[in-house]
């Protein structure tokens, strides 16, 4: 059985870990953890959050714990749910053990969004953005198809290889080759437009936005780290496309 201090720390760490793992910015994680601790009756808690680990201690007591963050995905639904649970705890509609239990359930729950909905998302991103950026509608359907295929390749590789940058590289290669192939078949007319549209679902939007927000908030460990993540992703995509362009 855990003591109250241990339970408070375990709950805060669980909340922080879920938020970092699913793509929240650091200042929000800090804020949520401190809030949970305060609502649980701790006057002064210290938290230290980076994108690879979460630490917390209660001032003046012998209680400090660390939670390592080894995997990072993007699932903002989970971030919103932690936020909601924390609000419910602040309103005293749930108590601390319940909060801890709910957070554990949330942590173990698999990604709630089905793959087909993500593929629909990829289709909705690639086609419209191609039209907006390039001001033409001729290549819309090839772009949508290749955008979906590229995202599918990225998703499957990322699921089984678990190396994000490699998955992005291969997805970019597939998109480039498929675009060239469709144009040679005569379905599309402009390789550049198709590639631009089809790449848009893979743009590292979350790391990039969070990098800016973290740096502005003064988190100089996590902000630049995220910027590096975003840059490597962009470089992987760019390199894949560059290979295709030099080959054809």
């Amino acid at each position: 059985m855990m003591t109250t201090d241990e339970l408070i720390i375990a709950t805060c760490l669980k909340a922080g870990k879920i938020m970092v793992e699913n793509g929240s910015e650091i200042s929000r994680v800090d804020d949520t953890m401190i809030r949970i601790a305060q609502n649980a009756g701790v006057v002064q808690a210290n938290t230290y959050v980076t994108i690879t680990g979460v630490m917390m201690s209660i001032q003046g007591r012998n209680a400090t714990q660390i939670a390592a963050v080894n995997k990072r995905t993007i699932d903002l639904e989970k971030v919103a749910q932690v936020n909601q649970l924390s609000r419910a705890f602040a309103d005293q509609t749930i108590d601390l053990p319940t909060l801890h239990q709910r957070l554990s359930q949330l942590d173990q729950a698999s990604r709630s969004f089905p793959l087909w909905l993500q593929l629909v998302g990829a289709a909705l991103v690639s086609g419209p953005l191609m039209i907006m950026f390039r001001h033409e509608v001729e290549n819309t359907w090839p772009t949508v198809v290749i955008g979906v295929v590229g995202y599918l390749v990225f998703y499957l590789l990322n699921r089984y290889l678990k190396i994000k940058f490699l998955s992005e590289l291969v997805a970019a290669l597939v998109i480039g080759v498929a675009a060239e192939w469709l144009v040679q078949l005569g379905w599309g007319t402009n390789v550049d437009d198709i590639i631009i549209g089809a790449l848009m679902p893979l743009v590292p939007g979350v790391p990039l936005t969070n990098a800016v927000r973290d740096i502005l908030a003064g988190n100089f460990v996590s902000g630049p780290a995220r910027a590096v993540e975003a840059m490597i992703s962009a470089a992987a995509l760019g390199f894949g496309i560059a290979v295709v362009i030099t080959l054809f």
């Binding site: 699932d75 903002l76 993500q118 998302g121 991103v125 039209i131 679902p201 939007g205």
Partner: peptide, 17 residues
């Protein structure tokens, strides 16, 4: 209209509520 659709699509990809 396209801007609305594109934002909706990206929202689906990153799983916002």
């Amino acid at each position: 209209v396209l801007a609305y659709i594109a934002v909706l699509g990206f929202g689906l990809i990153i799983n916002i509520p």
